[in-house]
Simulated scan of single mutants.
Amino acid sequence: METTVKLYTLGYSRVKTYVTALLFVAGNIVLPQLFHLVPQGGVTWLPIYFFTLVGAYKYGWKAGLLTAVLSPLLNSWWFGMPAPAVLPAILLKSVLLAVGAGLVAARFQKVTLPLLLAVVLFYQLAGTLGEWALSGSLFTALQDFRIGIPGMLLQVVGGYWVIRKI
C-alpha cells in the first residue's frame, strides 16, 4: 500500500519548525497521559514515540529531533514519566526515530507501511543495543520487544494514517 503525500523538510531558521515541533510535543504529552490511564499502557503502547515518528516523517528530521528531545524531557519533568533512570534510553530511541524517519521520508518521498515498519524496526533494534549498553541488562533492553509490539504496530499503522491525513 503506497501513498504519495506532501512531505516537508523544515530548517531550524524557520519559525514554522518550532511551532510544528511544539504541536507534536503537545501530542507526545497528551497521548502518554491517556495511555497511562491503562495498566502497563505506557510500556505496551509506547505512546511517547508516536508523534515523533509522525512529525519527523512529515516535516523532516529537524522538527522531529526537537520533538524527540523535548517530549521525554517535559514528560519526565512534569509527570515523572518516563522515570529519570530510563530517560537516557528513551531519549536515545527518540533521537534514532526522528533521524531515521526524517531520512527515510527525504530519501523515498512517499509513505508506505513497509517504510514505516523499517523505520520502527531501525530505531527499536539500534535503540535496544544502546539501551543494553546503558543498562547492562539485555532483559531490560528487550522490554519493547517483549511488551511493546502493540505500540510498534500502532506507530506503523496509526502513523501511516496520520501522515496521510495531515
Rank of each mutant, 00 (worst) to 15 (best):
Ala83Thr: 11
Ala141Ser: 03
Val30Gly: 14
Thr3Phe: 15
Ala21Val: 03
Ser94Lys: 09
Val157Pro: 11
Leu34Trp: 13
Val25Gly: 01
Trp132Cys: 02
Leu23Arg: 08
Gly159His: 08
Val99Glu: 12
Ala83Val: 12
Pro82Ile: 09
Leu66Asn: 07
Ala21Asp: 06
Leu125Ile: 14
Met81Pro: 10
Gln109Asp: 09
Ser76Asn: 07
Trp61Ile: 00
Val156Glu: 00
Leu37Arg: 14
Pro72Trp: 01
Lys16Gln: 13
Leu103Ser: 07
Val99Ser: 09
Ser71Phe: 02
Val86His: 07
Pro88Leu: 03
Ala118Asp: 00
Gly159Ile: 02
Pro72Val: 00
Lys6Met: 12
Val69Met: 07
Tyr18His: 06
Gly42Gln: 07
Arg14Asp: 15
Trp61Leu: 11
Thr140Gly: 09
Val19Cys: 08
Gly102Pro: 01
Leu134Trp: 04
Tyr8Phe: 12
Ile149Gly: 13
Gln40Asp: 15
His36Gln: 12
Gly55Ile: 06
Leu96Trp: 05
Leu153Tyr: 06
Pro47Ser: 08
Val111Pro: 09
Leu97Ala: 13
Ala63Phe: 02
Gly80Glu: 07
Gly151His: 04
Ile48Thr: 01
Gly102Gln: 03
Thr112Asn: 03
Glu131Lys: 01
Thr128Arg: 03
Thr67Asp: 07
Met1Val: 08
Ala68Gly: 10
Thr3His: 15
Trp161Cys: 07
Gly127Leu: 05
Gly148Trp: 11
Ala85Val: 14
Lys6Glu: 14
Leu22Thr: 11
Pro39His: 07
Ala89Phe: 02
Tyr160Gln: 01
Leu23Thr: 08
Gly148Val: 10
Leu125Gln: 02
Leu46Asn: 06
Leu53Phe: 08
Thr9Cys: 04
Phe79Met: 07
Leu91Ala: 11
Leu7Val: 08
Ala118Trp: 02
Ala89Gln: 14
Trp77Lys: 12
Arg107Cys: 08
Met1Ile: 07
Leu116Val: 00
Gly64Ala: 08
Thr20Gly: 02
Pro114Ile: 00
Leu153Cys: 10
Val38Glu: 04
Leu115Ala: 05
Pro47Arg: 05
Tyr12Cys: 14
Phe35Gln: 06
Met152Tyr: 04
Leu115Lys: 02
Leu91Lys: 05
Phe145Glu: 10
Pro114Val: 00
Ala68Trp: 10
Leu31Met: 12
Gly130Ser: 05
Pro82Met: 10
Leu31Lys: 07
Trp45Cys: 09
Tyr18Phe: 12
Leu70Trp: 06
Gly100Lys: 04
Leu138Arg: 01
Leu134Met: 09
Leu91Tyr: 04
Phe24Val: 10
Lys165Val: 15
Ile90Cys: 10
Leu23Pro: 05
